[in-house]
């Protein structure tokens, strides 16, 4: 594979063609925060925390480093003022769904939980790591997304779950270790819904706010037949 040279934060970095900027940076021990990235799973671009600035003369672009491939002569800034601002905004938005983002990360970019939003907390940031792990690595398709926009959420398909989950990771359920928020770990136990109430076709994974979830299921029609 061809080698390419790029500059990250003023430092010369060598990388293999086909790598993402994120991978090149990590290999060079340069920090870029991520929430939806995992080395074993294809990049997805959901959390946007990995944004970096690409400089070309006095022009600059902001791209998601987990998806952007390295190229000869790229000039990348990972912690410019602009990027720090972006990350603060992104973290503040994520905080509205999940208020337990690691303190160090929040402090680094000056983000802070806002008590106004606690009511809407879902704890799932829709990073898709669980869904993608189950689909791409295990080929089991037990988890999936339903809905769009503000009602988008992760659900589990019970028939598939019965088939695969009991033996996955020797009963450990491997997806549990991928969720950055720990939602699945705390709420999705065994192969049924945590609240013990059988819904016919798709169980929500994040069962902290039951009414919200019932409403969503109703809206997409899972409760009715």
């Amino acid at each position: 594979m061809a080698e390419v040279n790029l500059v990250i934060n003023g430092e010369q970095v060598r990388a293999q063609e086909g790598m993402s900027i994120l991978e090149a940076a990590r290999e060079a021990d340069i920090f870029i925060p991520t929430l939806c990235h995992h080395a074993e799973i294809d990049a997805y671009g959901a959390c946007r925390l990995c944004v970096v600035e690409l400089r070309q003369g006095d022009r600059s672009r902001v791209v998601a480093s987990c998806l952007y491939p390295v190229a000869e002569g790229l000039v990348v800034e990972t912690e410019s003022e602009k990027i720090k601002n972006y990350r603060r905004t992104i973290l503040n938005l994520l905080l509205q769904r999940w208020d337990n983002i690691p303190r160090a990360l929040l402090d680094r970019y000056g983000a802070a939980p806002n008590p106004r939003y606690v009511e809407n907390m879902t704890f799932c940031i829709l990073c898709g790591l669980c869904v993608r792990y189950c689909r791409d690595v295990k080929g089991a398709n037990v988890l999936g997304f339903i809905g769009r926009g503000t009602i988008r959420q992760v659900v589990v398909f019970p028939d598939q779950a019965m088939k695969y989950c009991p033996t996955c990771g020797n009963g450990e359920m491997e997806c549990l270790h991928y969720c950055p928020t720990g939602v699945i770990t705390s709420d999705y136990q065994g192969t049924g819904p945590a609240n013990g109430q059988p819904l016919p076709h798709a169980y929500p994974v994040c069962i902290r706010d039951e009414t919200n979830i019932l409403e969503i299921l109703e809206r997409v029609g899972h409760l009715e037949y």
Binding site: V131, R135, N141, V142, L143, G144, F145, I146, G147, R148, V155, F157, D159, Q160, A202, V220, G221, H222, E224, Y225
Partner: peptide, 20 residues
């Protein structure tokens, strides 16, 4: 195709109805 993908698509587009 896996069922989760079918649900993903049918709940994404408002045009599709999963209720009578």
């Amino acid at each position: 195709l896996p069922l989760n993908l079918i649900y993903n698509v049918t709940t994404f587009y408002k045009h599709f109805s999963l209720v009578p």
